[in-house]
Each structure stands twice: as C-alpha cells, then as structure tokens.
Amino acid sequence: MKKVLESSVTKKIISLSLTFVIVQILIYVNIINSYLQATLATICINIILAVSLNLITGFTGQFSLGHAGFMSIGAYVCAIITMRMSTIQGFILGVLLGAIAAAIVGFLVGLPTLRLQGDYLAIATLGMSEIIRVIFLNMKITNGAAGLSPIPQFVNWPWLFVFTAGTVLLISNFLKSSHGRACISIREDEIAAEAMGINATKYKVIAFTVGAFCAGIAGAVYASYFYFIKPDLFGFLKSIDVLVIVVLGGLGSISGSILAAILLSLISTYLQSFAELRMVLYALILIIIMIFRPQGLMGSKEISLSMFNNLGNRLTFKKGRT
C-alpha cells in the first residue's frame, strides 16, 4: 500500500484530482464567482502558453517571439469551426484541428528558421507571427479587423482543467524522456550534443512543433471561453506577455511557469481597477523581481512533493529533538 502511495504516478493523480475537486467546490459555493472564473480561465490559458513556450525557449534554448501567432491559429480555427458546428463534437474537433493547424505552421516555419541562432531566430519568429496576424486581418472568413463573435462558449472549469493538466503532463513527461533530454542538451551545448549523436535540427523542430501545438490549444480555449477574438489580441505584445511569464518563472522550470502564470494573471486582474497605474506597476514588479531573482522565481528547479516531504521530515526531526 505504501509503495503504491509513493509511486510518482499515484502522487500526480492524487494532487491533480484534489486541485480539480477543490476548485470545482469553490465554484459550486460561488467563492469563485463568474468574475473570478474569467481570471481562472486566463490563468489556465497562460499556463498552457507559458509551459509550451518554456519547452521551446527554456528547455531547448531557442528564443521565440512567435507564440501569439500560433495561439491565434488555434483560436481562429476553433472559432470558425464551432460557429458552424455548435456542438460539443464541433468544439472538440475545433480544438484538435486548431492545434494541428498551429503545429503544421510551426513545423513549416521551424524547418528553415531554426537554423538561425539567437537574435535572428527571435526576429524571424516575430516576423512570422506578424504575417499570420496580417493574414487574419485581411481574410474574409476571419471577418478582418472586427474579428469573430459570438463564438459558442463550451469551455468551463472541467475543460480548462483537462487541457491545462493535459498540456503540463505531456510536456513534463516529454522532458523526462530521452527525446526531452536531447532537447535540453541542445540548450546546454549544441556542438557537444551533435557530437554525441543528437540531431539538433530535428529536436529543435520537434520542440517548436509541440510548442506550437499547445499554443494552438490555448488559443482555441481562449476563443471558446471569451467568445470574441480579433487579430489585435494576438499581436507582438501577447508574445511578450508569455515570454515575461516564462522568464519570471524561470527558464527551464515547469513549476516556475505555472507559478508565474498564476501570479501575473492575478496581478494584472487586480490592477485592472487602476487602469493608468497598471502598466507602470506591472513593469515595476517585474523589474524588482528581476533585480532580486534574475534567474526567475524557480531558476531551473521544480517544485516537487518530495520537497514538502523533506520539509516535513526536517520539522518533525527538530520537534523530536526538543
């Protein structure tokens, strides 16, 4: 019995189900009211975006500024499909096709651009996401600058949970595999990685494609929850927003990204009442954190349950001695 409880899979299942049930109860008793539910959705969407960008930038070391572009593809594909097929099947199809479309674009863009290094890659991905935005701005089916609405709303907490937990689990599983380690080795030293038999281009493209796929999911969830999208929502600033979360949480830390996504979503929600001050305060908080913790909240470490166990052990040990 003890062994079962201690296996990491069981621990994961327990902590995930607890999170789900607790939030569900809070919604049920209306502590998380409809206003806070929008914040909850923002948090989940930001977690998906940040964790997937972290895969590309934090773990594989490829500086991308195009995440909003991939997100917009997921959002538009899902919106267009659900507006014509307003059923739960249509929604699932929309999310899936949105993510796949984003992944395909990610793959096609990644193949030539991932040969570029550092700043050049950042500029290329930024350009790509601007091109995508301009395309959506000029297409008929996307309704140009006015955008699409009302998009049928299917996303509720259970869906948010499925997509967020799903993305986090898949990506953290991947990172613990040999393929994930191949990605990390590229960040560490691309020449050494190649010399040890890692096909750097292949794994950069894989990380990029998977990241784009997840950003597509985030976009689809966004469209379906907030029922209104327009090209401006997915501009350069959105990519920067996600990057800020990743850097703040720590490049190379999944739990850091989650923590930072929660923190920044909450901060920007609560600052909404101080419209003018908001951007200033937001920037100030970032600057302060970056001065005192330039490696981000978590560095490249992860929060794990064993950390709490260790803490618990230490506390009980101390008590036992006194």
Binding site: S177, S178, H179, R181, S185, M196, G197
Partner: peptide
Amino acid sequence: IAMHKNVKYGL
C-alpha cells in the same frame, strides 16, 4: 544523453 542514438521508444 549520449545514449540517445540507441533509444528505441518513440515520441
């Protein structure tokens, strides 16, 4: 990481 080239399980 150096053993990656002989790993058989897929993505």
